[in-house]
């Protein structure tokens, strides 16, 4: 007999809130922004391409909240998760930011000096950029998948790694690989969203019954 597990209930509750595909669309569009930015810098000599992914969270934040309010909450109801889950996510974010800062410092130092180790670092990174980005993407998505319990993030990480490895060995430009990954994730998000809307039709009466009952 299987023991009842509160962790399972917690996981199921959390997962049900992210089965709407919005998080996938958000991640996919974010990756697309990187791809589009790099393509713009190549085609239109748009040197400030990194502005696109940088401003994206500020633009998408309100859209995300509004989409949750108008699509998810009327269909499956509202839940406020405790601070425990939030703390775990915050720890992952801070850890990633510290790691990213460390990586940027090493790269910045490597780019500003001509010492042997810096040249060796550049010779390692520049020709293997896509492999490195692929491994980092797989590691970060696995970390998030483990933290929030969304197993499809593992798949996204592995697909990204696979596609970037393929792009590296077939000399497909990095920007095209990013656009393909972004489109794939957005596509999956749209499928999930459509399924979610189909499986959870708007039930006007439920909230009214709740409000009358108490």
């Amino acid at each position: 007999m299987k023991k009842p597990s509160l962790k399972e209930v917690e996981k199921k509750t959390y997962m049900s809130y992210h089965q709407d595909g919005l998080i996938d669309i958000f991640i996919g569009v974010y990756i697309l922004m990187f791809g589009a930015g790099i393509l713009l810098s190549t085609w239109a000599d748009f040197a400030m391409w990194f502005i696109l992914p940088a401003i994206f969270p500020a633009i998408m934040g309100p859209i995300w909240i509004s989409a949750k309010k108008s699509i998810t909450i009327p269909r499956i109801g509202y839940v406020k998760f405790g601070i425990r889950g939030g703390n775990k996510l915050m720890a992952v974010f801070i850890g990633l930011m510290v790691a990213a800062l460390g990586v940027f410092m090493v790269f910045g130092l490597g780019a500003s000096t001509d010492q042997g180790w810096a040249l060796a670092l550049r010779n390692l990174i520049i020709p293997n950029g896509m492999i490195i980005v692929g491994i980092l993407a797989a590691a970060i998505s696995s970390l998030f998948a483990y933290t929030v319990g969304l197993t499809r993030l593992y798949v996204y990480g592995l697909c990204t790694l696979g596609l970037l490895l393929a792009a590296h060995f077939t000399i497909i430009p990095f920007a095209y690989a990013l656009v393909a990954i972004g489109l794939g994730i957005v596509g999956n998000g749209v499928v999930l969203l459509t399924r979610f809307i189909h499986n959870h039709p708007l039930a006007q009466g439920d909230q009214a019954i709740a409000n009358k009952a108490f």
Partner: peptide, 27 residues
């Protein structure tokens, strides 16, 4: 109760969807 134990709060509709019971029963 287990549903409410793992969250801070939830509304009626959320509980009903999670537990898959009728509004009257949940009420």
């Amino acid at each position: 109760m287990s549903q409410l134990y793992v969250v801070e709060s939830a509304d009626f509709l959320f509980l009903q969807k999670q537990l898959q019971i009728t509004p009257g029963n949940l009420s």
